[in-house]
């Protein structure tokens, strides 16, 4: 049931995109997202889509897996679409189809929905090709400058990696608790909304108690090994920019330039 739950749905394989430095991927994702927001017409979005498709092709991840990420925000996409469709501010010269639906409104709603979908699919390329650990490493490295103003970058990254590390553990524990309570006649799938919420108590309390117990044990284990945070710690895997990263950056720069040009000329 919950065993299938893996955070960030990392897709284990080797590809050019997998091998990129996580920092490159993070920065390029930011560039990609920016260009989606800079684009103000469908040509710009088409360029972003083309970029995305090429990136997916190079990542060796089945396109279906990337598409699946949209499923989780499908409701949001539909909601945005409908709101924009219904509350589109009508201007002079707009063609009304029926009631308050206009061609322009339809186009604008589609545009915003496509923007959202592209956004999520792009981000999922990052999470599909980067392990949570190297992602945190990348974030830590990128936030490094903040440590000069006494921002606890390393601690933040550590909290993130511990949280990520414990997601599968807690999922497994949840699974076990659900089974144990089911064996005691616990019923979690029937009844109205409030009944179901109440039925969660026998799962949530042991889960929380367990999480606190684990946190305590982990804290003790770290103390016992004199863990002292960021001071003079070295890394097992050093991040390094390579030729690949340069290629990917040039490719993304082409996208940004393309979007800007399309914005100017159309």
């Amino acid at each position: 049931m919950l065993q299938d739950l893996t955070f960030g749905q990392y897709y284990p394989t080797t590809s050019l995109v997998h091998k990129l430095d996580p920092r490159t991927k993070l920065l390029l994702l930011i560039a990609y997202i920016t260009s989606i927001f800079v684009a103000d017409n469908f040509y710009g979005l088409a360029a972003a889509l083309l970029f995305l498709l090429i990136a997916v092709a190079f990542s060796a991840v089945p396109f279906w897996s990337v598409l699946k990420s949209v499923k989780s925000i499908l409701f949001l996409v539909l909601f945005t679409f409908l709101l924009n469709l219904l509350f589109y501010a009508k201007k002079e010269g707009d063609t009304t189809l029926f009631w308050r639906i206009t061609v322009e409104g339809l186009l604008s709603a589609t545009f915003l929905a496509s923007r959202l979908i592209l956004l999520v699919m792009g981000s999922s390329v990052l999470t599909l090709t980067t392990t949570p650990v190297s992602l945190t490493d990348g974030i830590e490295s990128l936030l490094k400058p903040l440590s000069y103003v006494k921002f606890p970058v390393h601690e933040l990254a550590l909290i993130m990696s511990i949280a990520l590390r414990f997601i599968p553990t807690l999922a497994e524990e949840t699974d076990r608790i659900i089974r144990a309570q089911k064996a005691r006649g616990g019923d979690f799938d029937t009844g109205n909304f409030f009944k179901r919420i109440k039925a969660l108590i026998p799962i949530l309390i042991p889960l929380l108690v367990g999480a606190f117990r684990r946190a305590d044990e982990l804290g003790n284990a770290m103390d016992a090994r004199c863990y002292s945070g960021s001071r003079n710690r070295t890394k097992y895997k050093k991040l390094k920019f390579t030729f690949r990263d340069l290629l990917a950056t040039l490719f993304t720069a082409a996208l940004v330039a393309g979007v800007v040009l399309l914005k100017i000329f159309f």
Binding site: R176, I177, A180, Q181, A183, R184, G185, I205, V209, G210
Partner: peptide, 20 residues
């Protein structure tokens, strides 16, 4: 199924972690 589960008691590993 419910009757069955009342007739076959199941004690998991570390059952004290299911107290709530």
């Amino acid at each position: 199924l419910k009757t069955l589960r009342s007739k076959v008691g199941m004690v998991f590993q570390y059952p004290e972690y299911q107290l709530f």
